[in-house]
Every structure is written in C-alpha cells, then in structure tokens.
C-alpha cells in the first residue's frame, strides 16, 4: 500500500514539476530494517517515481559502510538530499507529518542550488572559515518545526562550511536525552549553542557566529 495518498501524490507531482536540476535521494537502511526504515525507504522510492529529476538510491548502513562514511551518515534511517554537489542536507528519521513539507522544500532548494537567505545572511555564511554542524530536533506533529529545519538546510545549501540535519526526536530518543531536548524545534549548533523554537534567520545567524567564535 502506498504511503502517499492520491491527493498528496498529485500535489507532490505538481511541486516537483518545475525542478531545475537532478536530485539524488541517497537513503540508508539495513538488511534487518530499523524502526521506520522500511517506511522511509518506501517514501523515498514513491517520491522518486513522481519526477524524472529525482532518483532514489538505497544503501545498507552495515554492508555499505564505506559509502555511509563518504556521505557522513552515522545513524539510520537517513536521507541525504544531493543536488549538483553534496550541500550537507540530511534527514534522520522519517520526514512525515509536518516534516514532509521540509523534505519537499529541501528537494526543491537543492535542485535549484539557490538558498533563500537575506543578503546579510549569505555574506555572514560566506565568511565562515571553519565547519558548522546544525542539528534541528523535531517531532512530526510540530507545526513550528519545518521553518527551523528549512532555515538550517538553506544555510547548508548557501555555505560549503555548513551541514544541517533534521533529527526526528522520537526515533532517536538517546540523542534527545544527550542534547537535553524537552521541546521542539531545538536547533543545536556545533554541540555548543542552541536555539529554541522557530527563530528568525538573524537570531540563528547570531547563535551560529557565537558557536564559531566560542570554539
């Protein structure tokens, strides 16, 4: 049985109809599939079937560990959304519920290669001289979460120094505990600083600079 119903399928098809460049959905699962691994794989395959520009590649986290390392994948289910190059856009856990919006947004933005950030934002990211890792913790039932995820992913697309993960907290409870997640969205930058809620771009930028300077 398909995961996406007819109505959503039609909307996705329309959303993906004007993709500018090819997008690879590089998905990692394993032979004995983890919780939601099977559904995540199915979702990726269903979406790839809706656009000539989107392809699904499914790998085994254990058997293909070299490839997992190559894409910096450290947990599953994982999806790397890859455009002309790897912008560092990752989804850990199934992007269902409200996060489905973030997922389609990532596909579209990676395809165009153009992040939609303010001029100041683009400039600040261009000046980064060291790597930044953004982890956005979400739950699928959180309407405030997609803006935080989309902002982080746009920063990753804008700067080669930034990589950004969506992390579905209910599938990775140990990470939720490690990063003291009691509410979502929670954006953790370089393990050191964090932002609560769907914060506007300037505030996240400020925290990002704080994280880089504090390092």
């Amino acid at each position: 049985m398909p995961l996406l119903n007819e109505e959503i399928t039609a909307q996705v098809k329309e959303q993906l109809s004007d993709l500018e460049g090819p997008v690879r959905l590089v998905m990692f699962t394993q032979e004995f599939e983890c919780q939601f691994c099977a559904e995540t794989r199915q979702l990726v395959e269903e979406i790839a079937a809706l656009s000539d520009h989107v392809t699904a590649e499914v790998y085994d986290f254990v058997a293909d560990q070299n490839r997992a390392a190559e894409w910096s994948i450290d947990k599953i289910p994982a999806i790397a959304v890859i455009g002309a190059q790897d912008d560092g856009v990752r989804f850990y856990g199934i992007p269902s519920g409200y996060e489905f919006t973030s997922f389609l947004h990532a596909i579209k933005t990676v395809s165009s290669g153009r992040a939609e950030l303010s001029t100041e934002g683009v400039q600040a990211l261009a000046e980064l001289s060291e790597p930044v890792h953004i982890q956005v913790f979400v739950t699928p039932t959180c309407p405030y979460c997609p803006p935080a995820v989309m902002l982080a992913h746009q920063m990753a697309i804008s700067s080669p120094m930034v990589r950004a993960d969506m992390i579905e907290a209910t599938e990775f409870p140990h990470l939720a505990i490690k990063y003291e997640v009691m509410g979502v969205p929670r954006t953790v930058i370089n393990e050191t600083t964090h932002v609560e809620g769907a914060a506007p771009e300037p505030m996240v930028l400020e925290k990002l600079q704080e994280a880089v300077q504090g390092a």
Binding site: L3, L4, I8, S96, T101, K108
Partner: peptide, 17 residues
C-alpha cells in the same frame, strides 16, 4: 499511521529583485 502534510510554507520566497 503516517500522515504527510504539505503546509503553505512550501511557497518559494523571492529575493529582493
């Protein structure tokens, strides 16, 4: 058990042009 929501935020924003 899964649902997939497409919220209005998918609209593409445009830079100042």
């Amino acid at each position: 058990m899964f649902d997939f929501k497409l919220t209005p935020s998918l609209q593409e924003t445009q830079q100042e042009t």
